[in-house]
Computed example of a mutant assay.
Amino acid sequence: MSIPATLTAGQVLSRHQEFTVIDVRTPGEYASGHLPGAVNIPLDRIAPSLPRLRRAAEDKGLLLVCATGARSENAARTLASHGIPSTSLTGGTRSWSAGGHGLDYPAEGRRSVWAMERQVRVTAGSLVLLGLVLGLLVHPAFQLLSAGIGAGLVFSAVTDTCGMALVLGRLPFNRRR
């Protein structure tokens, strides 16, 4: 399987009309600002959306976007494994807005939601601290919580997946209103 192509924000700007833009962030992140015309299909909904994405790819190229480019590249690999060509925006919406390009917001207004990476960091860090504190104050077995989170982070890095992000993505503030 080949790694899908990527484009920079500047390259996308000049070719924006050639693409159907798919934002793979959570609905909450999408509501905090997305590329003009982007459709929100969260990463955890890519597999069930394969027929729809295949049809869209037949009409125009698919441009996958997330906050930094990591999730969109993951989605692009998933699509490529099903024979659906796509392109990922290098640097995601951060590079798009840093380049001075505007973002659109849903009709119900802008929502302020932390990026999924930030949500994972604060959750993992909090659980590690909780395990250490409870291990010192209550019972040493609570340190297994910290060890489990550490093992999960290593597994996440090695496999380029994140179970904690999948769980956090199901929380109400990360879903559509």
Score class of each variant (00 low, 15 high):
A38Q: 02
S86P: 03
A57N: 08
D23T: 05
N74S: 14
L64M: 08
P51N: 09
V65R: 05
C66L: 06
L79F: 03
A76S: 10
L43R: 06
S32N: 09
V39T: 14
S88A: 12
S72Q: 07
R77F: 06
S81Q: 15
L79M: 06
G69N: 08
P36G: 12
D104F: 10
V24Q: 03
L62Q: 00
R55W: 12
G28E: 00
A56H: 11
L103P: 04
P36Y: 12
R45S: 08
L64G: 05
R52K: 15
S95F: 11
L103C: 11
D23F: 02
R94Q: 15
T78D: 12
L43K: 02
D104C: 13
R71S: 04
R110H: 09
R52Q: 09
D59H: 14
R25N: 03
V39E: 10
R111K: 09
P42R: 00
V24M: 03
I46L: 01
V24T: 07
Y105R: 00
L53M: 07
E73V: 10
R94S: 15
V39Y: 06
G33D: 02
G102V: 11
R25E: 05
A31Y: 00
V39D: 08
G99M: 08
C66T: 07
P27C: 02
I22V: 12
G33V: 03
H101F: 12
A67R: 08
S81T: 15
L43I: 09
R45I: 06
Y105Q: 00
R54P: 07
S72P: 05
V39P: 05
Y30L: 02
K60S: 13
G92I: 02
G102K: 10
D59C: 15
R77H: 15
H34S: 03
R55G: 13
V21T: 05
C66R: 01
A75F: 10
H82D: 11
G61K: 10
C66I: 05
S88C: 09
P85G: 13
S95N: 13
P42D: 01
A107S: 10
R71H: 04
P27R: 00
S49K: 03
N74C: 14
S72A: 09
D44M: 12
T87L: 09
P51M: 05
D23C: 07
T20Q: 12
R71E: 03
T87A: 14
D104E: 13
V21D: 01
T78H: 12
L43G: 02
S88Y: 08
P36I: 14
A75N: 05
Y105S: 00
R25G: 04
